[in-house]
Each structure stands twice: as C-alpha cells, then as structure tokens.
Nucleic acid binder design. Structure first.
Length: 687
RNA sequence: GGGCGCGUAGCUCAAACGGAUAGAGCAUCAGAUUUCUAAUCUGAGGGUUGCAGGUUCAAUUCCUGCCGCGCCUACCA
C-alpha cells in the first residue's frame, strides 16, 4: 500500500509544478521522515527549487502546501524546518486497507527474466562462499516472483574445466582408482567431501614436480575433447558432485530449472557460431605481434570507448595502439577458446541471439515434484524452452567483474545493445574467514595472516567451511534448544522445527550484509539465534500465533470488520505521551526532536511498517540489494516485540481495543510470514 | 603501475537520488517474568564517520589529494 500512496503523491506534485511553475522535474525525491510524527512522507524539493525559482525554500514549500489541494488518502501537508514538506496520510484509511490485505495491481513487464546463480565447479563440496551466492540468487528470484515476474533459474556447470581435471588426475594418478572404483565412491553419501580432500591433494601434487602439471594439461584436453575414458570419468565425478550440490541447496529450499553445462557448449559448437559473428563484427582481431602473437584478442573492457560495429574499422586501424596489457585473449594461439569466449557464446544463447539451442534432458526431480533439466547433446523430445529471455541477472562474485564486463562489451560490439542493457552482473563480495575462525579450523596462520581482518577461503588448499557442515551444526544447535523448550512434541516435529530455525538463521545471516561488504565469517555470529537474526523474526511470528491459539481464534481469517481505527491510531489531544521511549526533550531541541510519542503513534509505526512490504520489495529489485528486505523484516519484528511486551492483548478489558490489538497482531504476523517467505525462510509453528 | 571496492561505537554491520537528532546487533553494566513461553523487553555508557582540502542552503554520501586494507590485472576457469 505504502508505495501506491507514494506514487500518487509524486504525481500530484508533478502536476502542481507543471501547472504553477511550468516545471518538469526528472524525479520527485520522496523520503521517509525520521519520526512518524512528522508524517509518512517528506519532500525536500523546495530546497532544490529555491535556486530555479529565486525564492526562499520555505516560501516555496508554503506555496506548494497551499496549492496542491486534496490528495486521496492524505490528511494534510505541512511545512517543517527550513522548507521540508511533510505529508500525513489518513492513518485509518491506510490501516483498513492493510487489514483487508488490499494491494492495488501494478503493471508488470511481460518479458521473462533469467537468473543464473550458484554455478559451483562440480569438483568438490560447496562451501560458505557458495552459500552466499545461492542464497542471494534464490532470494532475488523470490523477489522477482513476488513482483509478478516470470523467472527461469539456471545454474551453470563448468564440467570440463581444470578444476574437474584436477580431481580426475587425483583419482587416476594419486589414488590409481579404476572407473569402477570411482563409480562406487561416487554413490557414497558425501562424495563431494571426498573430492574436497582429493582436490587439495592434487593441487599440492602439482607443486611437487613440474612434470605433474603436464599430466593435468593432457587430462584437461582429453576431457574437453570427449569420447574417451578420461572424459567418462570426469562425467561420472562432475555429475555425482553436481547431484550433491543440488541436495545441499535443496536443504535450503533452493531449486533450479535448468543446468546448462560447458560440455554442451563445446560439443554443440556454440563457440564456433559466436566466433564467426565476433570476427565479422570486428570485436575480435588476430594479433600478429608481441606477447599475444597468434591469438584472437579483444580490447579489455574499460580501456577505451565501447566497441560497436560502426567503429570496428577504427579499432582495426588502431589495433597497434592497443598495448598487450589492454588485450584480453579469447582464443589461444593453439586454437582453443578460453572461458570468456564460451561465456560470450552462452550469453548470446541466453538472449536468443546465437541461432543454436541445447538439447534437454530430465536430471533431478525435487521432492515437491519440480523437475530440473540439464543440457545434453541429444535431448528428450518433450522439453520446456529455456533461454531467449528479455533480461538476465548473473549472480557472480565481484572478482569476476572484469570477465563479466568483457561479455557485455562483446555483446555491444556485436550490436546487441538491447541485450547488453538488460544484462546485470549481480555482483557481491566474497565470504572470508576471520583469523580466529581459521585457527578454530586448525589452519596454521602466518604472522602476516593473523594481522589481517579476514582470510580468503581456498578450495585448492582445502581451506574453508563446507556448506553441509555448517547446516548440520546449525540444525544440531537449534535442535538442542527446541528439545529443551518443547519436550511435549514428537522428536520428528522438533527435528522439523530445528531445521526451519537453522535455515532461517543461515539465510538471514547471508542476507543481512549488503552485497559489497566482505563477510568475515565467524561461527559465533553465524550460529547466533538472538538479536538481528532469522530466528528473532521467526520467534515474533510464533508469539503472534500463540496469542491466537491461546484465544482460540484463527489468525489467518481474523476480521477487522467494525474496528474504529481512528480511535486507536490518532493520538487524542489529552493523551499523555508514553514514558520510556524517544523522550529526552530539552527546550532548545524540542523542535528537532518533535513532540513526545503517544501510544497511538507507536501503534501506527507498527501498522505503517506492515504496509511497506511491497515498497521494500520494489526497492530490493531496483537496487539488486536483498539486504533491505532483511532490514525490514528485522524492524517489523522488533516493533512487534515492543508492542507484544506493552500490550497484554488477551487480558485487555476493553473489547473494542482488544479487537484492534488482535487485528494488529494478525496483520503483522501475515506480513512477517510473507516477507520471510521472500527470503526463503519458513515460519515454524512453535519455538 | 592500472582497474574495482572498502575504511562509521570495543567487535560485526546500517544509514534509499546529498537532507531533519549518524542507527542496529553483539559485548559490558543496571533492571523487567503471578501474564499471549525471556530465542524477549527497558535503560546506561560507548562516535572528530581514516586524514586534509573542495563543491553545496545541507556531505558518512559527490569531487581532488594523501594514508591504510582487500580483490582483479594469466594463452587458469
């Protein structure tokens, strides 16, 4: 509801400016006042207009307030401070709409969106860094779906790269295992853990003897080529590890629609098709000189003006002026293509610009019946259509932004500006370990490392926290708490609740940090169920649920019919302000601090927060920042807990008031459950 | 060297396009439970927003320089 009132307000302001000053503003800035008593919206636009209109801001604000007229849903407008315009909504009307769960329809673009996330090399167990990726990606998918968008979820599988080759080398040369041996191991429960260790061992083995690296290279070539024993072994390993990753992510309610694999990009010759187009457009050129002699290169992104088909010729002529540092090698001198090249081809496919398609095969059936598909050279006849989308989001960590930019530049160079404009690198920072955490894991720290704020996880060194280990730990910890609190429940019920709490804690933890912040992982914080955590919000829901259970009522169908919202949400003139909150008013700063908070204001804060879910979701999407939703959930839960503590609802003697308080609890409960759902967090029945 | 990002309370983090008093959690200390279970709540202390300039009515936010830190900068993926 909140966002609709906001856009209505913006429209009225726009009309007024046009009518009165003949002004068109690109954007009407609307803020949220620091205190609910200032109103629900604040407009600083008089400051901005002061220069243009050569008038004092306060004067302009007064003119706007005087001339804007009535706006549906709003009570009044008033000038504050040096020229703010504060808008007050009709509290009772908004509350009624929220109580009735009314959310006016908005126009939703029809185009399909593709979100790619997770994309773990299928050669070892997933770790906490991968969890951050998958949780961010999955939450973003839920945000888009909440907003009514159609979304395909893809998880790109690099099954032919060196990382898989390393594990193949480990099995073949370090462990001397036969194909049958590996098959047997691959069917073991946590095969990915086995590979985790083997991968680290193989990496060390290369350091021992330069000859060993030649074996790696040969292995890699055999895998890329396909149709041999080594490639078959790689397929066995990568498929088994991939299944493990899907299982791990399924524990967190993260699912995928399609798994495109690099092996198909190779074998279906996606690259060949892309290569021809890139050459023709002049995006790639053959280097005859210097270090990169014999390679097909492109100009490194950001070193000069974007490439376009029109100025390709200029680039050709200017190629000598491009230093080798500014070149990105796409095709090596031995004729093989690097991963950026494959990525370009893959992204042309995403936008339906390649003229080729994958084969599709059923791969993984989720317990809920959802079918996940995988790429295949020879597909099944009946399959859904993936790719050919309007917008894409790639959830890939910040370290790869240069490669992502190269792909975008290539699309532009090919003249696909529309695609490039709808290509979003959903960039986020890594999860690292605090030195203390590293020490807890038994890792020997150097002097240098101890002094750092955090230490990067390394799959090669086998250094990191495995995703399943962390989930297990969280569940065990939650189970202990549930056991001690709910002896009356069956063990299976307690187990289920423990899982919900564990996942709530984990998902919230990964979402509460903004994307560009490096998470310095620490067990103590990640395992916390108190304060700003998922379980805190889940607990608020449980509290609300308990009120209705105890009162033998249904929270989901609680009717707000006949409630006099005005009576409870508008402070009465004679009402005394609340003690204990917000309140240290001296005579000098009384104007800044505003009047004291009344009970009605405090209740209104809660209703107002409950009306903002759709508004926050929009903001999360526009900024690709799910952390705002986490903050909103926490704020709502916090306000509810204060409310819960202040009002013993079931003991309320005034029947009218009791009904209003119940409606408050029902609405907040509904919005908390809804917002948590968007974060992929379930609300347990008891805690 | 170049590119990207970061520096805010003891610690971990917030602060929508520049806006009203820089906010939370943890930790510390002092309190709250005959009640809808305290995984909760109330309160206290804790800040020259790395440093120095600049732009602006207004700067944690934008610009410049410096200091410190991280990542990227392979014919690896």
């Amino acid at each position: 509801m909140y966002r609709h009132l906001e856009s209505r307000l913006a429209q009225h302001i726009r009309d007024f400016l046009r009518r009165t000053y003949k002004l068109e503003l690109e954007r009407i800035v609307i803020e949220q006042p620091p205190n609910v008593q200032f109103g629900e919206y604040a407009l600083p636009l008089a400051f901005e207009l002061a220069k243009k209109l050569r008038k004092a801001p306060r004067k302009i604000a007064e003119e706007i307030v005087g001339g804007i007229g009535a706006v549906e849903g709003f009570e009044n407008f008033e000038v504050a401070g040096a020229g703010y315009i504060n808008a007050r909504v009709n509290r009772a009307a908004l509350a009624l709409a929220v109580a009735k769960n009314e959310e006016p329809k908005t126009d939703v673009p029809s185009g399909k969106i593709l979100v790619e996330h997770t994309s773990i090399n299928p050669n070892k167990a997933a770790h906490i860094g991968h969890l951050r990726n998958a949780i961010l990606g999955d939450t973003f998918v839920r945000l888009l779906q909440f907003a009514g968008r159609k979304v395909d979820v893809q998880n790109y599988i690099d099954n032919t790269g060196v990382q898989v080759a390393d594990v193949v080398v480990g099995f073949q040369h370090l462990e001397k295992k036969s194909a049958a041996d590996v098959e047997r191991l691959a069917s073991q429960p946590r095969f990915d853990y086995y590979c985790w260790d083997l991968y680290a061992r193989a990496s060390q083995w290369y350091e021992q003897n330069p000859e060993n690296k030649k074996i790696r290279l040969r292995t890699l070539h055999e895998i890329e080529q396909g149709g041999n024993e080594t490639a078959a072994l790689a397929e066995t390993i990568s498929t088994a590890v991939l299944r493990r990753h899907l299982e791990t992510m399924d524990r967190l309610d993260i699912e995928y629609d399609f798994l495109p694999r690099e092996s198909e990009i190779l074998h279906l010759h996606f690259w060949d098709a892309a290569f021809e187009k890139l050459k023709a457009a002049g995006v790639l050129y053959f280097e005859n000189e210097s270090k990169n002699k014999g390679c097909w290169v492109m100009r490194r992104a950001g070193t000069s003006k974007p490439l376009t088909a029109e100025n390709a010729e200029i680039n050709q002529n200017a190629e000598n002026s491009v230093s080798e540092e500014d070149q990105k090698v796409i095709v090596r001198s031995n004729g093989t293509v690097g991963y950026v090249g494959k990525d370009i081809a893959y992204h042309m496919w995403k936008f339906g610009l390649l003229g080729k398609d994958f084969g599709y095969r059923r791969f993984f059936l989720y317990p809920n019946g959802h079918q996940c598909w995988i790429s295949s050279v020879q597909g099944e006849p009946d399959h859904p259509h993936f790719g050919d989308v309007a917008e894409i989001y790639n959830v890939i960590d910040a370290r790869q932004s240069e490669a992502q930019n190269a792909v975008i530049e290539a699309l532009r160079g090919l003249g696909f500006n529309d695609a490039a404009d709808h290509y979003t690198h959903f960039s986020y920072e890594m999860v690292a370990l605090t030195p203390r955490c590293a020490a807890e894991l038994g890792y020997e720290l150097s002097e240098d490392e101890r002094a750092r704020p955090y230490i990067e996880v390394s799959g090669r060194k086998g250094f990191g926290v495995k995703a399943d280990d962390l989930i297990d730990k969280l569940i065990a910890s939650a189970k202990k708490e549930v056991d001690s609190r709910h002896a009356e429940l069956d063990d299976s019920e307690r187990e289920k609740i423990a899982k919900q709490i564990a996942i709530g804690a984990l998902r919230y933890f990964m979402l509460k940090f903004t994307k560009q912040s490096v998470i310095a992982f620490d067990f103590k914080e990640a395992l916390s169920f108190e304060g700003e955590t998922g379980p805190y919000a889940q607990y608020a829901v449980v509290r609300a649920t308990n009120i209705f259970r105890k009162g033998r009522m249904d929270a989901t169908s609680f009717s707000a019919e006949g409630i006099d919202f005005k009576r409870f949400l508008m402070p009465a003139v004679e009402e005394r302000p609340l003690q204990g909150r917000v309140n240290h008013v001296s005579s000098t700063d009384a104007v800044l601090k505003g009047p004291l908070l009344h009970e009605a204001d405090e209740l209104w804060e809660l209703w107002l927060a409950a009306s903002k879910t759709g508004f926050i979701v929009d903001q999360c999407i526009a900024t690709t920042e799910p952390a705002y939703l986490a903050k909103h959930v926490f704020q709502l839960a916090q306000l509810f807990n204060t409310f819960y503590h202040r009002h013993p609802i079931l003991a309320e003697a005034d029947e009218q008031k009791k009904k209003f308080l119940l409606a408050t609890a029902a609405v907040v409960r509904r919005e908390l459950i809804r917002a948590l759902q968007v974060m992929g967090i379930e609300s347990p029945p008891a805690m």
